[in-house]
Amino acid sequence: MHHLSLQPNPIPDPNTVNVDQSEQTKSRRLWIDSAMRIVKSKTSFIGLCIILILILTAIFAPLIATHSPTAQDIINRYQPPSSEHFLGTDELGRDIFSRIVHGSRISIQIGVIAVGIAMIIGVLLGGVAGYFGRWIDQIIMRIIDIMMAFPSILLAIALVAVLGPGLTNAMIAVGIVGIPQFARIVRSAVLSIKETEYIEAAKSIGAKHGRVLMQHVLPNCVAPIIVQTTLSIGTAILDAAGLSFLGLGAQPPTPEWGAMLSDGQAAIQNAPWVVAFPGLAIFFVVLGFNLLGDGLRDALDPRLKQ
């Protein structure tokens, strides 16, 4: 289904895979073409820009922030946006702009760790299920079916309920509920790839299963994995913010955006900015990942284009 990167010809030696020069050039060309398509597409370019802004904000957070994200100034609580406090202050007089800027680091952390957990476990499970088939496939996929029998946010809430509230546990919970999607996507990609000639060739010259799976099959599933990863980061940030909003994720005084919303909701009557800006930050970042994810899907596999 998704043969997008290296597709080596029948291999002479299982331990030294020589990829044909022209195939390599073709493959590189494909990635360059895909990158060009993303840059040319207005929406995915906007998505890419939003994500770049997020990354730069996270890197240079201490330089961009005008105040300490946790410094309290009770006298100046609930100040509306001004030149001193760009986005106003919260219930403890903390500068909302600076908290949002520092919160970008937490969002990236959530995206990387939660989606990392989902991707690593999901890809391995899906890869093994699709490659070995039979009872291994049956067992793994039934477990995945059971996990998918729960609405994801509810399963995440249940997991945090038992593991205990906190940012780390929230990331683990969001990661676990993301596993089934990766597993299913990779399994279906592996099912079609494992029937191709070059896999048969690798097997016929005695390459071990582990090597065939890790070196030949999974690298050819990269395109759908990249698309799913990008889309999953947006969902993970949204879910983790939801958990923090419910008081189950990041705990005070962490400047996590969902937790900021939760802290500010009591003051919505008099100081709506306390709620408005952290929510906008979540929205734009999730939008960025969704735009880029859609663009990547169209660029890497035009057949999936809706």
């Binding site: 949204l238 913010a241 939801g242 909003f245 969902g258 919303l261 929510g279 979540i282 929205f283 969704n290």
Partner: peptide
Amino acid sequence: VSLPIFWL
């Protein structure tokens, strides 16, 4: 699809 419903 990108809106946090709790914020909305």
